[in-house]
Design a protein around this nucleic acid. Structure first.
Lengths: 224, 224
DNA sequence: TGCGCGCTTTATGTATGCATTAGATTATGC
DNA sequence: GCATAATCTAATGCATACATAAAGCGCGCA
């Protein structure tokens, strides 16, 4: 019973595959690639590749420059700050709105599960697993905020910092405080305290941003 | 000496022209249009039109549905609330950051000019002119916030509500309070008071949002 | 008369070819 | 030897052709 037997357009496949290649680092940050190269690599003609590139360009993952090919965008520390600032604002709004929705415990179970997963990961000092839980927490939080634009934008921003996050994960201190914050946000949402949910999450994101920028500076990671 | 003699790709022209057709209402909200129709209308082949449609789809202005053509997206009151919430957050962040930059009077002149323009427009009860000044103020504020992602996102959101704004403009009360708010934001930025700039702008946007949603409800404007 | 089946129509998704022109390369004059 | 112009190369932007598959249509049958 494989539900995935839906046929998919080459164009969509190209988007998916290019995203994978970018996130995995197979297409390095800052590297250029001709449309024809990529088409060859993906086993299709230039047309769907070009459409995919256009889509990814609109999402801020690549840049299309005439005659230079498709450039995988690199991020400077300033870019990271900008992106984290956006995420801070929009996720805090989501936390606030989520707290106002009067969610049942069942509806908050995904959020709670993400937190538990992170606790487990921390106990085993498994940073990889922790990062998955963290992503889960943040995307679920945004989902609970019930604002489709915020969801779309947050997803885009997360995509843009994906590589950098993977890179810096190894350098960051064990995120003990982070888990505390997450619990605080969940508690505030449970309690329906919108201001408190926003406040805690805002502080959490701001703290995470400062830490990340500190790492970038400390290790001179200038373009990821 | 017309500097605009740069040749422009048909694809870009298509984006420009489709945007114009959408904003002017010539392509009505909710209407469907075949790629071939649009190509004929713009005097080019389907390829650049399709690329343009893809770009506009990524920006949330249209939707591409197989065999149904390109649909001009309509906005529900919920959509409006979502969009204004995003704008509220990101512009407030911009105001805060702008206040921290220590801008000179010269650098704030555009903002001041927009406010003066609005005053003039209000004196003459020229709502059209006031709206232009208002757009100018908000986009300049975002520019002063110096966050390229915020700028891009805010521009997208503004585009999405463009039609609706034009529509509701005639129904809204004369924006006297609005101008007061604008002055307050400028003053706070001048004074370098980031918290105050954020606070005033946040309240300003929240108020504008509530008024707009009130109008939509009052006049039963359900999809613009 | 209502329903289902297959045919037709047609819009899209994709491949392909070609004109254009930016950028590289080579040739040339000083 | 260096700067500049002429030439060449090749990647893109676009038009076009076509296969595919979905929507509509009509026809036959119950």
């Amino acid at each position: 019973m494989d539900g995935s037997t839906k046929p998919m357009s080459n164009s969509q496949r190209a988007v998916q595959e290019l995203r994978r290649l970018i996130f995995s680092g197979e297409l390095g940050a800052g590297s250029d690639h001709l449309e024809s190269e990529l088409a060859l690599r993906l086993g299709m003609s230039r047309t769907p590749v070009r459409e995919a590139a256009l889509t990814l360009a609109a999402q801020g993952l690549v840049e299309m420059r005439p005659r230079k090919g498709v450039r995988i965008l690199a991020l400077s520390p300033d870019d990271m700050r900008d992106i984290y600032d956006v995420l801070t604002e929009l996720e805090s709004l989501s936390a606030e709105n989520a707290a106002r929705m009067g969610y049942s415990e069942a509806e908050l179970s995904e959020l709670a599960k993400a937190i538990n997963d992170m606790d487990g990961a921390l106990a085993g000092e498994d940073l990889e697993a922790w990062a998955i839980g963290d992503n889960q927490f943040h995307s679920e939080l945004v989902r609970l905020g019930k604002n489709s634009r915020v969801q779309a934008i947050a997803a885009m921003m997360v995509d843009q910092v994906r590589r950098a996050r993977a890179m810096t994960l190894q350098f960051r201190p064990l995120p003990l405080k982070s888990n505390e914050d997450h619990r605080g946000v969940l508690e505030a949402i449970r309690a329906g305290d919108a201001d408190e949910a926003r406040r805690i999450h805002y502080a959490h994101r701001t703290h995470a941003k400062d830490m990340l920028l500190g790492i970038l500076e400390k290790y001179r990671l200038l373009h990821l």
